[in-house]
């Protein structure tokens, strides 16, 4: 028997057919999640962040160049959370659409300066900006990071919004990381933010190290926004790990 056969057999032989979960608890939590999604869906814009799938309401006026309101509320994401932290504006009857953000729609108003990555996508420029969010039951999360595009006329359109869904958004260390979902004509370079004195951020993928580009948030210099050049890290490709180093090269 080959090692692969042995592995297959072992994986099946060790199944526990009697393993059960508390389905009452599952359904209770599922109902709560459904309600949170509905609540969020009724607001101006709805985003579902990746880690635990909690619905988040983006707060604030539309971005510069956007319409007076953020338009009709997108329906609530009910696709499986993808490996990317993302949000969805899927329509109601799609079977299992990939969770995408409210792609290509006007987004909430940026807080502080919009960071221009210099990455040209068609006639648009790839930009990142911090926005206000509100996560039900998580009062210490008030900001999220949006990946968007700025058109030549200055209009901002949001592609992906990521934010924490637990804890505090300004706690030291890495926060939610956003990955492209391959459902856009403009792939979103992998991005996120780190809180602390990071001078270098390095991702690893398949044993390869990739340096991120960085910019500090204009409203809080401890917040380091980073993204990976699409030429060095294919948008959507998952990182195996990521670290930050300070000026002296120490790992943070």
């Amino acid at each position: 028997m080959s090692e692969l056969d042995r592995l297959r057999d072992a994986m099946r032989a060790t199944e526990r057919p009697d393993a059960t979960l508390d389905l009452e608890t599952v359904m209770r939590a599922g109902r709560r999640l459904r309600i949170r999604r509905r609540v969020a869906g009724g607001a101006a814009a709805t985003f579902v962040a990746g880690l635990v799938g909690v619905a988040v309401v983006a707060v604030g006026a539309p971005g510069p160049g956007g319409p007076a309101s953020t338009g009709p509320a997108p329906s609530v994401a009910e696709a499986p959370p993808s490996a990317a932290a993302s949000a969805s504006a899927s329509t109601a009857k799609e079977p299992t659409p990939p969770p995408t953000v409210a792609r290509g729609v006007p987004g909430p108003k940026p807080l502080g300066q919009v960071i221009d990555t210099g990455v040209q996508q068609g006639t648009d420029r790839r930009v990142y900006y911090v926005v206000s969010v509100s996560v039900p039951g998580v009062p210490k999360v008030t900001i999220g990071l949006a990946a968007g595009r700025r058109a030549p006329d200055g209009t901002l359109r949001t592609d992906i919004l990521v934010n924490d869904v637990a804890g505090a958004d300004r706690s030291p260390g890495f926060h939610q990381i956003g990955y492209d979902e391959r459902s856009s004509d403009a792939p979103v370079p992998t991005f996120g933010y780190f809180v602390g004195p990071a001078e270098r951020i390095i991702g690893t993928v398949d044993g390869r190290q990739v340096d991120a580009r960085m910019a500090r948030w204009s409203m809080n210099k401890q917040v380091v926004i980073f993204w990976f050049d699409p030429a060095t890290l294919t948008p959507g490709e998952r990182l195996d790990g990521i670290i930050a180093r300070d000026r002296a090269g120490r790992r943070l």
């Binding site: 979960l21 389905l23 999604r37 799938g53 009910e78 499986p80 109601a92 299992t96």
Partner: peptide
């Protein structure tokens, strides 16, 4: 493992009406 499976089922149930 149990936590992860439970989370998966919670999300599945939350989306149950839309799953084919």
């Amino acid at each position: 493992a149990e936590d992860a499976a439970q989370t998966a089922l919670v999300r599945t149930y939350a989306s149950w009406s839309r799953i084919h």
